[in-house]
Structures are given as structure tokens and as C-alpha cells.
Design a protein around this nucleic acid. Structure first.
Length: 903
RNA sequence: GGGCGGUUAGCUCAGUUGGUUAGAGCACAUGCUUGACAUGCAUGAGGCCACUGGUUCGAGUCCAGUACCGCCCACCA
């Protein structure tokens, strides 16, 4: 880039796209790409990203994921580690079907009308249109993914991995097929896992109704009954018992007797079971083993018949007597009416309860019996627990380890069968004799595993896998598993798995369990969980609420760098953030600041340095205190950022850099430098050294900031002079290191900065015109004198002090100005000459008294602390020493101020 | 019913093993077309760090409890 181009104002839209193209062309994203300068002997840094769902657009959560992962991978890349961040997409079976169903519904079509084959063709067409949109959005935010490795959970390699994984689990006794109670979504027409059932608070009804006891003759007695409470009267049709608590005296005589279930006219026993809560309802509960989780357990324990009364579409099936074919809620209404008509409905009262709804369609989930495949999770979870307990895998932030522990210790077997079409078909075949054959072969097994029937006689399971089954294999299926590939050898286990805490069970847990079992090792050594991006009121963003922020719009408005900065700055790991547009402004303004600072530095190049000069280190012998301060502070920033990066404290990274670049480098470094760069009395090599100091600091800051704000830093870095061994792009430049800190120089310059601040403050409070130049006399302690002399021209300019006179002793000061403004910074004193009138003298007195009171308060506190024997004896020596020097400094200030006020 | 998180300036949030005077951005007030930047500069005002107790020489930070807000898990029909 030329100076001419940089002369323009900061406009991210002008260059962000072009910068991404340059990275692509340079092939720097792959761990061994041509542009990579990675040291192949170092352990690779591998990030596992949650592959976004192929449907729908990316939202701010994706943007956050991409940002955090990208900043980690960029840091690793610059640090010289071979770095792998593999892009991918998830086929998202149920979510994708839900979306496609709605699209085809708009054309008046249904899944059933299309049929499996045409529906799947339609799905492929659909995802071919969404795929590029999704990937384009990731690029727009700057994600430096290794695009050559793009993977999809439905591609051939993934399919083979799924079949192989399942076959392994089956052979290891960890996959089994059985009839069990599952969560049925009548809307999606499939079973869903426990995690996909969302408990929703709702006000329903609690009905109390009567089941009549059979008398000696075996007919229901009109006068004796047992009352039971239910929220789902339609399940009466499937009742096979009534249960009471064994210790419930009210019902002791009832146990063992028989009641008749109305409508279906079924006679069922009254049983005793500990699971019944005597305090709830009537203390007697109807048992519907096929449609309720608790009842199912009770039914199994007591060997009760399990009668399924609901069809797939949640209508009453042919066991439903007079209600056959009715929708579940129509049947409920009718049954309540009919009970009332019979005089068997005692009460109906409103009831607060939790209803399980489908995460996808929001339909009320019905528990029901189905024959399906399950993964035996107990042994897998035990191994996953061992991995986190031993520290082999670390969870950040650590508090999620408790959540992890709890879930892993109370985990149920995982129902993986889905009655959907879009996904991986379960590779299980059934023979007419009831034998089961599981095969990882693409074309299926040769024949039945247990008898001599051929493949042609077998029927494959029509179901597909839960979409998370294939996602769970992601860390190794993407590296070529089950083949023993070089990639697996090199990049497994991954380094950091990064995602939102909301999918810790869905995805992280499954990857851990599958990885450990199938690979024999954890899939990643660190789990980094970020929080959720909420709207400004703390609500979850959702399309239905209409409160979503489109990342692309934010980028168009403020630039990708601003969005990235906004998503990271001021946040902390695992904590949610409220997102408002003001945060984007912060990021954009910061980028703008950096842009203009660079513009200034380039424009301030001394004439003795050629425009195309290659990068030089500043000549150490020519450096003044300001230059040494700039270098030391930059070195300090490197230290801080390194520490924060190592701790995965990314907000600390942005905070450090924001302060260092804005409040130190720009506010003071550049301001000091302006004076030296234009001081014709200085030797050309001195001015050159100042300029090279600025270039060095800027170069360092651009490198440090690059992982967070890659576009603007890349653009600006291109405009700086470069060393011969610099690569052509910042993205693969070396992570910076800086020479040692200089604490004494930092302290000296900081004191001078404080003095300038105090002078400005005094002027402002005295109502001095901002542009007015006033004479200032200073008394500088001996230790500071050499540095101060060199900085004096800058002090003069920044504090509008002219002339600025250094006095030999405080005595000169006191005599020389009666009505001036006095400023005291420790043992540094200054006096601003100001023509006196009575008002201003009073104002000055008030100001000094205020300063004095403040100093006295602090001094009193410090002395009180030092006066305590307990403190002096028990506190660490360094703390006591610090308090002493602090008190001494305050004493000095107080004495000076008192002295001044006496006059 | 269990568990976790939050509570710090008007708003949004930092505050890393307890240690000088608790910080930032935005908003606010006042003044600035100072030759990088008004997406800016300078100065300022604004906090019983939710509450109660404890440990300690010393607590925003550690412990116990309370209150409110949010989230996760859970088979009261």
C-alpha cells in the first residue's frame, strides 16, 4: 500500500474483502500451506469447531464462535505452530427436515407425498444453495479456516465413520435394540432424545376421577371406588393398574383389590408402590405404563401389561374403544365429559405443571413404547468422567466441570433411532427369523450374521441416527477415521474444543464418550466454553422474537473487525453477554484510532529516511526517556497479552491492547514524539531513532492485535517498513517479543505524565482559556532532573507552558509567584504564572484546600496502617515497604500544599 | 426438588492466587476546527462493590447465611 491510500479515512468495507482474498491466494490457512511459516517440529495446535447447521443463516452466536476460534488459531499460527482449524457443516437431520418441510409446505407438498427418495433429492438441492451462503458468512467475519479440508457430516468419509462406529459399539455390547419408552414428537413423527425435550411451564388441569371397585360378584360397585388424580385423562384408555403407597393407611384395605377402567371396561389391580407420593392428589395414582415414565418403571416392576393407545400422529389407536381415531386432546375432552356424565368426575382444578415439548417443533411430547436402538452410556460416561477428573481434558471455565460431573453421573442410555429420512441410515439388518445383523459395509452385510439367509432376504432398519451421533465423531471422522491416516496421527487429539455452553451435553459429551471409546484417547485436551449472545434486555435472540442481530449487517455497518472486537471485549468465558450496537461503535472507533495513528506515523517520517527504507531498529544511543518509555510499555503489552492468551482470557487481551494503544501509545507516545520529530535542533539520527521507535511499537501492537482485528491490522501492517525476513503478510508474521522493561524509565515518565495532567487540571479549574500559553516554573527532584530536561519541550507543549523554567530550589518558587497556580506531584512542584485577581486567588485557595484534604485523608489512612503493630509485624515486608514509601510521598505532598496555603 | 451463575458508576461490564487511593467504554457536564483521528482532544462529576455475620494486620476478592434476577438438571401423576 502506498501512503496515498492510507491518507483516506478508515473504511473497512474498502479493504476487508480484498484482504481475505490475499490470505486465500497466499495459502496460509493450512498447517502446511505454502504461506505457512510453521515449525513442523512443534506440536500442532488444533481447534475443534462445532460445524454449523447447514440450514439457515449464521447468527451472532456463530460469529462469536468464529471470532474466538479464529483469534486462537491466528495466535498459534503467528507463534509458529502448525495450526489446524477444519471447516465443516452439519447435516442437522431433524432441524433440516423441519426447515425443508415448511418450504415444501409452501408449495402445498408434504414429506409423505414426495416419498423418501424424492424428499432426499429435494434436500440435497436445498443444502447446495445454503452451503455457499453459510461458508461465505464465515469468510466475511475473517475465519481463517483451512478450506481445503472442508467436511460435511453427510459426506462419504463421515458416512463410513458412522457405520464403523456403530458396528464397533454394537460388537462391544454398547449398542442394543429394544422396546422401551421413548420421547415421541407427533409433529416431527420421530423419537427424540431426552435433551431435545424442553420442560415448559404451563397451567393445565388436574382431574380427580373414580375407578369403581369390583364387588364379590365381579361387577363394579356403584358405591365403592378409589379416586385417582390425573392431568391426562385420555391415558385412562391405557391404564393397567392403580397404585398407592404401601404405608398409606387410607388405602391399606384397597391393595390387592380390583377396579374397572371405564370405557375400555378393563379390570386392573390396585397395587402398592413406593414411587407414589401419598401427599399428592388423592394419594392414589392410575398407572399407564406405555405412556408415562414413572408408570413405565412401576409397570416393569410389577409386570403389568403395557398398552399403547396412541398412534404416531397422536390420535387414539384401535385399543381406544369409543375414542378410536380421535386426536389426543379431543379424546381428553370427550373422556372428561363422559366421566362427568357417569358421575365419576369428582373435581377439575387448574394445575401448574411442566410439559415436555419438542425442542424443534414445540409439539407436546408423548412418552410411548417403541423398538429402537440405544447406546449404553454408563461405561462411556465413566471414561469421560475419568478424563476430566484426571485433568487429561480441562474444562474452561472450571465451574462447568460440576455440571459435567452431574450429567455424566446421572446419564441415561441414549436413544439414537430417528424415524426421519435425512441422515445416516442405521446399518442394521433384520432377518425374517428375528436375527439382527450390524455391518459397516457400505452395501450391507453379505447375509444374516446368525443364519444362512442372504442379504436379499434381510430388511434394513428404516430409521436414521440422531444427528449428534455423527457430530460426536467429528474430531476424528474429519481426519479420515477409520483409516489410520497421517492426519489422525498428527492432529488427534485436538488442542482446544471451543463452543457455547448450551451444547455441552449434546455435542461435547458425545464427542468425549465416542472419542475415548473408539480412538482410545480423549478428542481434545481443553474444552473452552463461551457464553451466549443475548439481546440488550438479556433475552435469548430468536427469529420469532424478532430480536436477532444479523452479523452481516453489523459487518456492513461497522466492519468485521469491529464486530469481532465487540464480541470479545468486556466479556468473560462462559458468561452471557448482552449485545447492543454501541459495542460495535467501540470496536469501529478503536480500529479508526489505530488507522489514524498509523497514518500519523507514516506521515511523520523524517526526510532523512527513504520512503521505501527497510525496517531498522532504533539506535539505542539516540533514545530519550519518551522513546525508552514507549518501548518499555510495548514490551509490557507483549507480556500481558502473552499471559492473557495462555490463560484464554481474550477480553483481557483486548483490554490490554485498547489501553496500551489508545491511552499510552497514542495519548502520550505519539504526543511526546511529535515534539522530537519536529525539533530542528535535534540531530537527524536522533529524530530518526524516534521515528523508528514509533514504527517498532506500532509493528508490535499490530501483531498483538492481529488475532482479534485481523483485517485492519493486516492492511496497516502492509504500509509499514519491513525487515528483510518479514513475510509479506501479517497473518504469518512472527508473534512479537520485545526487549526488557525499564521500570525506572517507566516510573520517571509516568511522573511527568502525572505532572502534565495536574497542570491541565489546574488550568481547567482556574478557567484558563484552553489555547492560552502561560509561564510555568518547576522544581524537579535531582533523580528526575536528567529525564525531565529531555522531556521538557514535550511538557511545555502538552501543558501549554511557555516559557517552562526549571528552578534550582523550592525557595525560588515560593518567592517568584504570589498568585499563580501551584501543582504538587509527590516531590515534584510546579507553579503556573497567572495574573492575579481576588476571585482567582480564592479559587486557587479552594482548589489547593481540596487537594490538601484529599492528600491528608490518604496520608491518615496510610499512617494508621503503619501505626498498627499487627500490620507491620504480620504483613509481608514488601507490602509494608510499599506503604512506607507511599506515606512518605503523601507527607511530602501534604507539606508542600500546607506550605503553599500559608502564604 | 437439586445445582450453577449474576448482583461493582445512570447503562454495559472488567477486576487473574486477599495488599497502595476500586477501573474501562458509553452516556453526562465544561472547554477545544491544537498540522493522525470530532469515529477525535482536554478536564470533570458520578460507587456503603446487593444485604447480614465471620476469618484476617488487611476483604469487591475467602467462608457461612439472606434477598432478588437468570440459567441448567430432575419420573409429583
Amino acid at each position: 500500500m502506498t501512503e496515498h491510500e492510507l491518507a483516506k479515512a478508515y473504511q473497512p468495507a474498502d479493504f476487508e474483502g480484498a484482504i481475505y482474498e490475499r490470505w486465500l491466494v497466499a495459502d496460509v490457512f493450512a498447517p502446511d500451506g505454502q504461506g505457512s511459516r510453521a515449525d513442523a517440529t512443534r506440536p500442532p495446535f488444533v481447534i475443534i469447531q462445532p460445524p454449523p447447521n447447514i440450514t439457515g443463516a449464521l447468527h451472532l452466536g456463530h460469529a462469536l464462535t468464529s471470532t474466538v476460534e479464529d483469534l486462537m488459531i491466528r495466535h498459534a499460527r503467528m507463534s509458529g505452530r502448525p495450526s489446524l482449524w477444519l471447516p465443516g457443516l452439519d447435516h442437522a437431520s431433524i432441524a433440516a427436515q423441519y426447515v425443508l418441510d415448511r418450504i415444501i409446505a409452501a408449495d402445498g407438498q408434504t414429506r409423505e407425498e414426495l416419498g423418501r427418495e424424492r424428499y432426499l433429492e429435494r434436500m440435497w438441492e436445498f443444502i447446495n444453495t445454503t452451503r455457499e451462503v453459510m461458508l461465505g458468512q464465515q469468510r466475511r467475519i475473517g475465519a481463517s479456516l483451512d478450506w481445503g479440508r472442508l467436511r460435511f457430516t453427510m459426506d462419504d468419509v463421515s458416512s463410513r465413520a458412522v457405520r464403523t462406529a456403530f458396528a464397533r459399539l454394537y460388537r462391544d455390547g454398547l449398542a442394543y435394540r429394544t422396546e422401551a419408552l421413548i420421547n415421541w414428537c407427533p409433529g416431527c413423527r420421530t423419537s427424540v432424545s431426552d435433551l431435545e425435550v424442553i420442560p415448559t411451564e404451563e397451567t393445565g388441569s388436574l382431574w380427580t376421577l373414580r375407578y369403581h371397585l369390583l364387588d364379590a360378584s365381579g361387577t363394579p360397585s356403584p358405591d365403592s371406588w378409589i379416586s385417582v388424580a390425573t392431568t391426562r385423562p385420555e391415558t385412562i384408555l391405557g391404564d393397567t393398574a392403580v397404585a398407592v403407597h404401601p404405608d398409606d393407611a387410607r388405602y391399606t384395605a384397597f391393595v390387592g383389590r380390583t377396579v374397572r377402567i371405564p370405557f375400555v371396561e378393563r379390570d386392573v389391580p390396585i397395587i402398592a408402590d413406593e414411587a407414589v407420593d401419598p401427599a399428592f392428589g388423592t394419594g392414589a395414582v392410575k398407572i399407564t405404563p406405555a405412556h408415562d415414565k414413572t408408570d413405565y418403571e412401576t409397570g416393569r416392576w410389577h409386570n403389568l401389561p403395557m398398552l399403547t393407545v396412541l398412534a404416531d400422529d397422536a390420535t387414539i389407536n384401535d385399543l381406544g374403544a369409543g375414542y378410536i381415531g380421535m386426536d389426543r386432546y379431543a379424546a381428553r375432552k370427550a373422556i372428561v365429559q363422559d366421566l362427568a356424565a357417569r358421575g365419576d368426575l369428582e373435581t377439575e382444578q387448574p394445575h401448574e405443571m411442566l410439559i415436555g415439548r419438542c425442542q424443534r417443533s414445540s409439539d407436546v411430547i408423548e412418552p410411548r413404547l417403541k423398538t429402537q436402538w440405544f447406546i449404553r452410556t454408563a461405561p462411556l460416561a465413566a471414561a469421560a468422567l475419568e478424563a476430566t477428573r484426571s485433568g487429561k481434558t480441562k474444562i474452561v471455565p472450571a465451574r462447568f466441570e460440576k455440571v459435567w460431573e452431574h450429567w455424566m453421573t446421572s446419564i441415561h442410555d441414549w436413544n439414537v433411532s430417528r424415524q426421519l429420512w435425512w441422515g445416516h441410515r442405521i446399518p442394521a439388518w433384520y432377518c425374517p427369523d428375528g436375527h439382527v445383523t450390524v455391518s459397516e459395509l457400505e452395501g450391507g452385510p453379505a447375509g444374516c450374521a446368525e443364519c444362512d439367509r442372504s442379504l436379499a432376504e434381510l430388511v434394513q432398519d428404516p430409521d436414521i441416527f440422531d444427528t449428534w451421533f455423527s457430530s460426536g465423531l467429528w474430531p476424528f471422522s474429519t481426519l479420515g477415521w477409520p483409516d489410520e491416516t497421517d492426519d489422525l496421527d498428527r492432529f488427534y487429539p485436538g488442542t482446544v474444543m471451543e463452543t457455547g455452553y448450551d451444547i455441552i451435553f449434546f455435542w461435547v459429551a458425545r464427542m468425549m464418550m465416542m472419542g475415548i471409546h473408539l480412538m482410545g484417547d480423549v478428542p481434545f485436551t481443553t474444552v473452552y466454553l463461551h457464553g451466549l449472545v443475548k439481546d440488550p434486555y438479556g433475552k435469548r435472540m430468536s427469529k420469532t422474537k424478532g430480536n436477532v442481530v444479523d452479523p452481516l449487517e453489523a459487518i456492513a455497518e461497522s466492519g468485521a473487525d469491529a464486530l469481532r472486537f465487540a464480541l470479545v471485549h468486556g466479556t468473560s468465558p462462559g458468561n452471557d453477554q448482552k449485545f447492543r450496537s454501541e459495542r460495535l461503535d467501540d470496536g469501529r472507533n478503536f480500529a479508526n484510532k489505530l488507522w489514524n495513528a498509523t497514518r500519523f506515523v507514516l506521515g511523520a517520517r523524517p526526510a532523512t529516511i527513504r520512503v521505501d527504507a527497510s525496517r531498522q531498529s532504533p539506535d539505542a544511543s539516540q533514545l530519550g526517556p519518551a522513546e525508552r518509555w514507549i518501548r518499555s510499555r510495548a514490551a509490557g503489552a507483549v507480556e500481558s497479552v502473552d499471559r492473557a492468551m495462555a490463560d484464554l482470557q481474550f477480553a483481557e487481551v483486548t483490554r490490554t491492547l485498547y489501553d496500551a494503544i489508545w491511552s499510552e501509545f497514542c495519548d502520550w507516545g505519539l504526543e511526546f514524539a511529535k515534539v522530537r520529530l519536529t525539533d530542528e535542533s535535534l540531530a537527524p539520527e536522533t529524530r530518526a531513532a524516534t521515528w523508528w521507535t514509533l514504527v517498532e511499537a506500532l509493528d508490535t501492537y499490530l501483531r498483538l492485535l492481529h488475532p482479534v482485528m485481523p483485517f485492519v491490522t493486516e492492511e496497516l501492517w502492509a504500509a509499514l517498513p519491513h525487515a528483510a525476513d518479514d513475510p509479506s503478510l501479517l497473518i504469518v508474521a512472527d508473534w512479537p517479543s520485545m526487549a526488557d522493561r525499564e521500570p525506572q524509565v517507566e516510573a520517571d515518565v509516568d511522573t511527568v505524565i502525572q505532572l502534565i495532567g495536574a497542570l491541565r487540571n489546574a488550568r481547567a479549574e482556574a478557567g484558563v482559556e484552553a489555547g492560552e500559553w502561560l509561564a510555568v516554573r518547576v522544581v524537579v527532584p535531582d533523580g528526575l532532573a536528567p529525564a525531565f530536561s529531555l522531556l521538557a519541550p514535550s511538557v511545555g507543549r502538552l501543558a501549554r507552558a511557555r516559557p517552562l523554567v526549571q528552578l534550582g530550589s523550592p525557595d525560588e518558587l515560593s518567592r517568584s509567584a504570589e498568585a499563580g497556580l501551584t501543582v504538587v506531584v509527590g516531590d515534584l512542584q510546579a507553579q503556573i504564572e497567572l495574573s492575579a485577581d481576588e476571585d482567582s486567588a480564592d479559587r486557587e485557595r479552594v482548589r489547593l484546600e481540596k487537594d490538601l484534604a484529599e492528600a491528608e485523608n490518604f496520608l491518615a489512612a496510610a499512617q494508621a496502617r503503619l501505626g498498627s503493630d499487627a500490620f507491620v509485624q504480620r504483613a509481608p515486608a514488601a507490602v509494608v515497604a510499599g506503604a512506607r514509601s507511599r506515606a512518605a510521598e503523601l507527607e511530602e505532598t501534604v507539606a508542600r500544599l500546607r506550605d503553599r496555603l500559608r502564604r
